[in-house]
Design a binder for these strands. Structure first.
Lengths: 352, 352
DNA sequence: TCATCTTGCGCAATCGATGGTGCTTAAGCT
DNA sequence: AGCTTAAGCACCATCGATTGCGCAAGATGA
């Protein structure tokens, strides 16, 4: 009657016992119809194939009863669409990326797709390797979050016909959704300056910027905002007070330690370019100038609940993840060929 | 000559232009050999198939040149092994689960497999739906981290012949790797008591436990450790001082607020059953008893860097993620049918 | 009554990789 | 020389779902 059964001479019971999935052929057998009809009913294309509602219902019933779930490998192989969306992101060690991953998964699942997130530790080679692997699995699209080389990835994917979107860090090949880093940094710096001024501190000489990477678009935009806010406060930015030492906690820690040692005092206000960098600064202060934790003004680009409680005087920029994801899924949902534009979302400044 | 080419009459250039993957058939054409030979060479099984090294080399060369990457859908469909390992976990909002996800991905990738992690928000239905989806994609194995119903999931997977492992929360159907929650809680409580005693505090009446779920194995083990440490300190555990109100920050916040309101004072020492619950407690204290943040003794089951700096008097239990993952991958790597045993890993108590 | 639609569905090729089976040709042995 | 054995590959069915095409039976119209 039917190829599997005939060829391998196995009964449905035998199949079940061998722990395999129920297939459309099994259902076709049971329903006394053909696999193509079953397939059409179960993937929803049955109306176009002029299959009667009565038959569709009965097949659906049998399928439910047998606990059918489509074999996505087979479906993907045939249809050339895997219904998976990949996402790479740098780390799971802060609330920003955590929120992105979580929200991404919710939204993707809401669209009946399978999210495939993977953290690539800010390592360009790992990013590429991961993307290649995702391509091997035929993902329908890839979201590159905070990628070190978004354009390289975009080109690789483009060659396979897989669209990409950049998140957090912009690229020039694919569309990007990022925070308005200039504005966020400007407002954060301005808030620090306003508070410092109100407190009667002499911030002009020692206002410090710590963390980030020189090659990183976000870092340079934030530095630009930092400097502009200083200029607008009628002071002069000081190059030695900008420590672009990487994001990792141990790097900001040692850069900050060296700076304090060199200048001989703890700055009155510090703009830290990520929560993970803040970790390094705070760790060093906790060990060497514990009291400074309560007196220093902190500005953190990215928000963390405990950081917020930790310091009396912490201002944070909280990036608007829901808004960013909305923008991103607007692009994903519109099936238009997306332009390589950069969409900026205003982040939120959280006051001390 | 070859089926694809013949049937569809398309050249290699046409294929490339249509942005499709290079297949073993394309390579076979180029190498003037058969697809099965190419396949065997490229998947490494060529020695068993008695293919000469010379031919293998030349095929490998051509494949590299053409940028071949196997179509994993096809491979999975045929071989019934997808080379994907799924992992569900509750949240990305704390360092513990973040570290688990990160380490999991590293280890899985080191084995040439594809990690598929997904956060299921402590929602039983979402857990099951996600697992079903993963099964549809034929994952080779599923790791259930902090699952609310690990046995239900294990049985579902077992029916499909997919092995599972429980992490963080134990089950009875599949093997489990968890922290020794009793010991961790016991030692954490003992540390709190020792410090409280040294400080001359009257902790016997108000030592508090906040957070977790009654149905949750970890919570009950931690409570057991908490009580035992109190007993061993020659005091009596007080049921009203154990608030099992869920993990979420807003739940611990209101439970804690109600407790303080009812008793009329902030406890001298508080055992909080997760960093996210600590967030709620600290948030309320910050708003209503800011000074208590510096005087109260905190014990946190789970570690967070900023929480550690925030409070002068915070003890934490830091679960030993690397050790746990080692145990887990020992099970995964041994192809033996794993027994449903529970492996406990000693966590680390971090002092204030 | 016969030709033409329309409805309802089955057939079979196909996606790319895998692996059992079997066919050549060359080498080894008596 | 004749026969066995092994080396080196090619052929083809198969995994499960999708989809263009075609066939049969009933409905409609002239």
């Amino acid at each position: 009657m039917e190829r599997h059964r005939l060829v391998k001479g196995e009964s449905f019971v035998a199949r079940a016992a061998s722990r395999k999935q129920v297939t459309i052929y099994d259902i076709a057998d049971r329903a006394g119809t053909s696999a193509s009809t079953v397939g059409a009913v179960l993937n929803g294309s049955w109306r176009n194939r002029r299959i009667s509602a009565k038959r569709a219902n009965s097949i659906q019933l049998i399928a439910d009863e047998m606990g059918y779930a489509p074999n996505m490998q087979a479906r993907a192989l045939r249809s050339d669409r895997s219904r998976m969306i990949g996402m790479i992101l740098p780390m799971y060690d802060n609330r920003y990326f955590g929120a992105i991953a979580e929200r991404f998964e919710v939204e993707v699942r809401a669209r009946g797709l399978l999210p495939m997130t993977s953290c690539t530790r800010r390592d360009p080679d790992l990013e590429l390797a991961t993307v290649r692997q995702m391509l091997s699995y035929n993902v329908d699209r890839i979201v590159c979050t905070g990628a070190t080389d978004p354009d390289g990835i975009a080109r690789l994917c483009e060659a396979q016909g897989v669209p990409t979107i950049n998140l957090d860090l912009p690229g020039s090949v694919a569309p990007s959704v990022i925070s308005d880093n200039f504005s966020g940094a400007y407002r954060l710096t301005a808030a620090l300056i306003a508070r410092a001024t109100a407190d009667g501190r002499q911030w002009q000489e020692d206002l410090l910027f710590v963390g980030g990477r020189p090659s990183d678009h976000n870092t340079s935009e934030r530095i630009r905002g930092f400097r502009q806010a200083i200029l607008d406060a009628k002071a002069a930015p000081i190059d030695e007070n900008i420590l672009v030492c990487g994001y990792a906690a141990h790097k900001s820690r040692s850069a900050f330690a060296a700076h304090v040692t060199a200048t001989g005092h703890v700055p009155s206000a510090i703009f830290v370019n990520s929560t993970i960098s803040l970790e390094g600064v705070v760790d060093w202060l906790g060990q060497h100038h514990r009291d400074a934790l309560d007196t220093t003004l902190f500005g953190s680009f990215d928000w963390d609940p405990f950081a917020q409680y930790m310091a009396q005087n912490l201002f944070s920029v909280r990036q608007d993840v829901p808004a960013m994801m909305d923008e991103m899924f607007k692009i994903i949902d519109s099936d238009l060929q997306p332009k390589a534009e950069v969409i900026q979302v205003e982040p939120i400044v959280v006051s001390a």
